[in-house]
């Protein structure tokens, strides 16, 4: 809801179609293209020609699926190619939408705490989102932005990877958590909930007081 709040604060008219479900990435990543394609077509049917100018999602990963993988790595039937093209150009990750599309550096938020950013892989490497969240955070009143070392290194989640190769995944998450703790931040944020969920799982297990918050929850806030 915080994303909606921020967007509305910028003057956008926000709509939500309750028929939407999933972009199909989980199946795609695991190799199940048929299943993934079914979801992709469902997604395209809902969003193409729905009357809105932009589609904004608080997840770099889902946006990557639509913007990068639909039609290139995930083959779509002929009649859906144009649809995919139209939808692709309207889909934006939340922070990139604010900064790159709306040209906003600040959303007038207030948040008290030391915050560090984890760069989610899809957002960083497929969508080249790195500065956008930092720019927005730097302009949050009361917020101190601190950088962790190796912010751009994967947190080890990777969807089914975390289950299939749990021990490697765990070792990666451990290193990420150590970087976070070294940074001295009390909040770690990012543009993807899946990474944050993974990181938060280990922080909690370790009994750490560092909190994980999606960037929309920081930008939508007006306190600590």
């Amino acid at each position: 809801m915080n994303m909606v709040r921020v967007l509305e604060r910028t003057g956008a008219d926000v709509r939500y179609d309750a028929k939407q479900t999933c972009c199909g990435q989980p199946a795609f990543n695991t190799g199940y293209h048929d299943e993934s394609r079914d979801m992709a077509l469902h997604f395209l049917d809902i969003f193409d020609g729905d009357g809105s100018d932009y589609i904004v999602a608080p997840s770099g990963s889902c946006v990557t699926m639509v913007k990068v993988f639909y039609g290139s790595l995930l083959e779509l039937p002929e009649e859906y190619r144009e649809k995919a093209e139209r939808v692709r150009s309207r889909v934006h990750e939340f922070t990139s939408f604010l900064v790159d599309v709306l040209g906003k550096n600040s959303v007038g938020a207030e948040f008290h705490g030391r915050v560090t950013v984890h760069d989610s892989c899809h957002a960083l490497r497929e969508l080249r989102i790195r500065e956008q969240p930092r720019l927005l955070l730097r302009n949050v009143k009361g917020l101190e932005l601190v950088e962790m070392d190796a912010a751009d290194v994967c947190c080890g989640f990777g969807g089914t990877f975390a289950v299939k190769h749990a021990s490697v995944s765990t070792a990666m998450t451990e290193e990420k958590v150590e970087s976070i703790l070294r940074s001295g931040a009390d909040v770690v944020t990012g543009v993807d909930s899946s990474c944050l969920m993974n990181i938060s799982g280990m922080l909690k297990r370790r009994g750490s007081a560092v909190r994980c918050m999606h960037i929309a929850d920081i930008l939508g806030g007006s306190g600590s």
Binding site: N29, C121, H122, R125, E126, D152, V153, C154, G156, F157, G158, G159, T160, F161, A162, K164, H165, V168, S169, M172
Partner: peptide, 12 residues
């Protein structure tokens, strides 16, 4: 091929 979190640092 499954032993990867697909982070993409390699391609970069």
């Amino acid at each position: 091929p499954f032993a990867s979190s697909l982070c993409g640092a390699c391609a970069d």
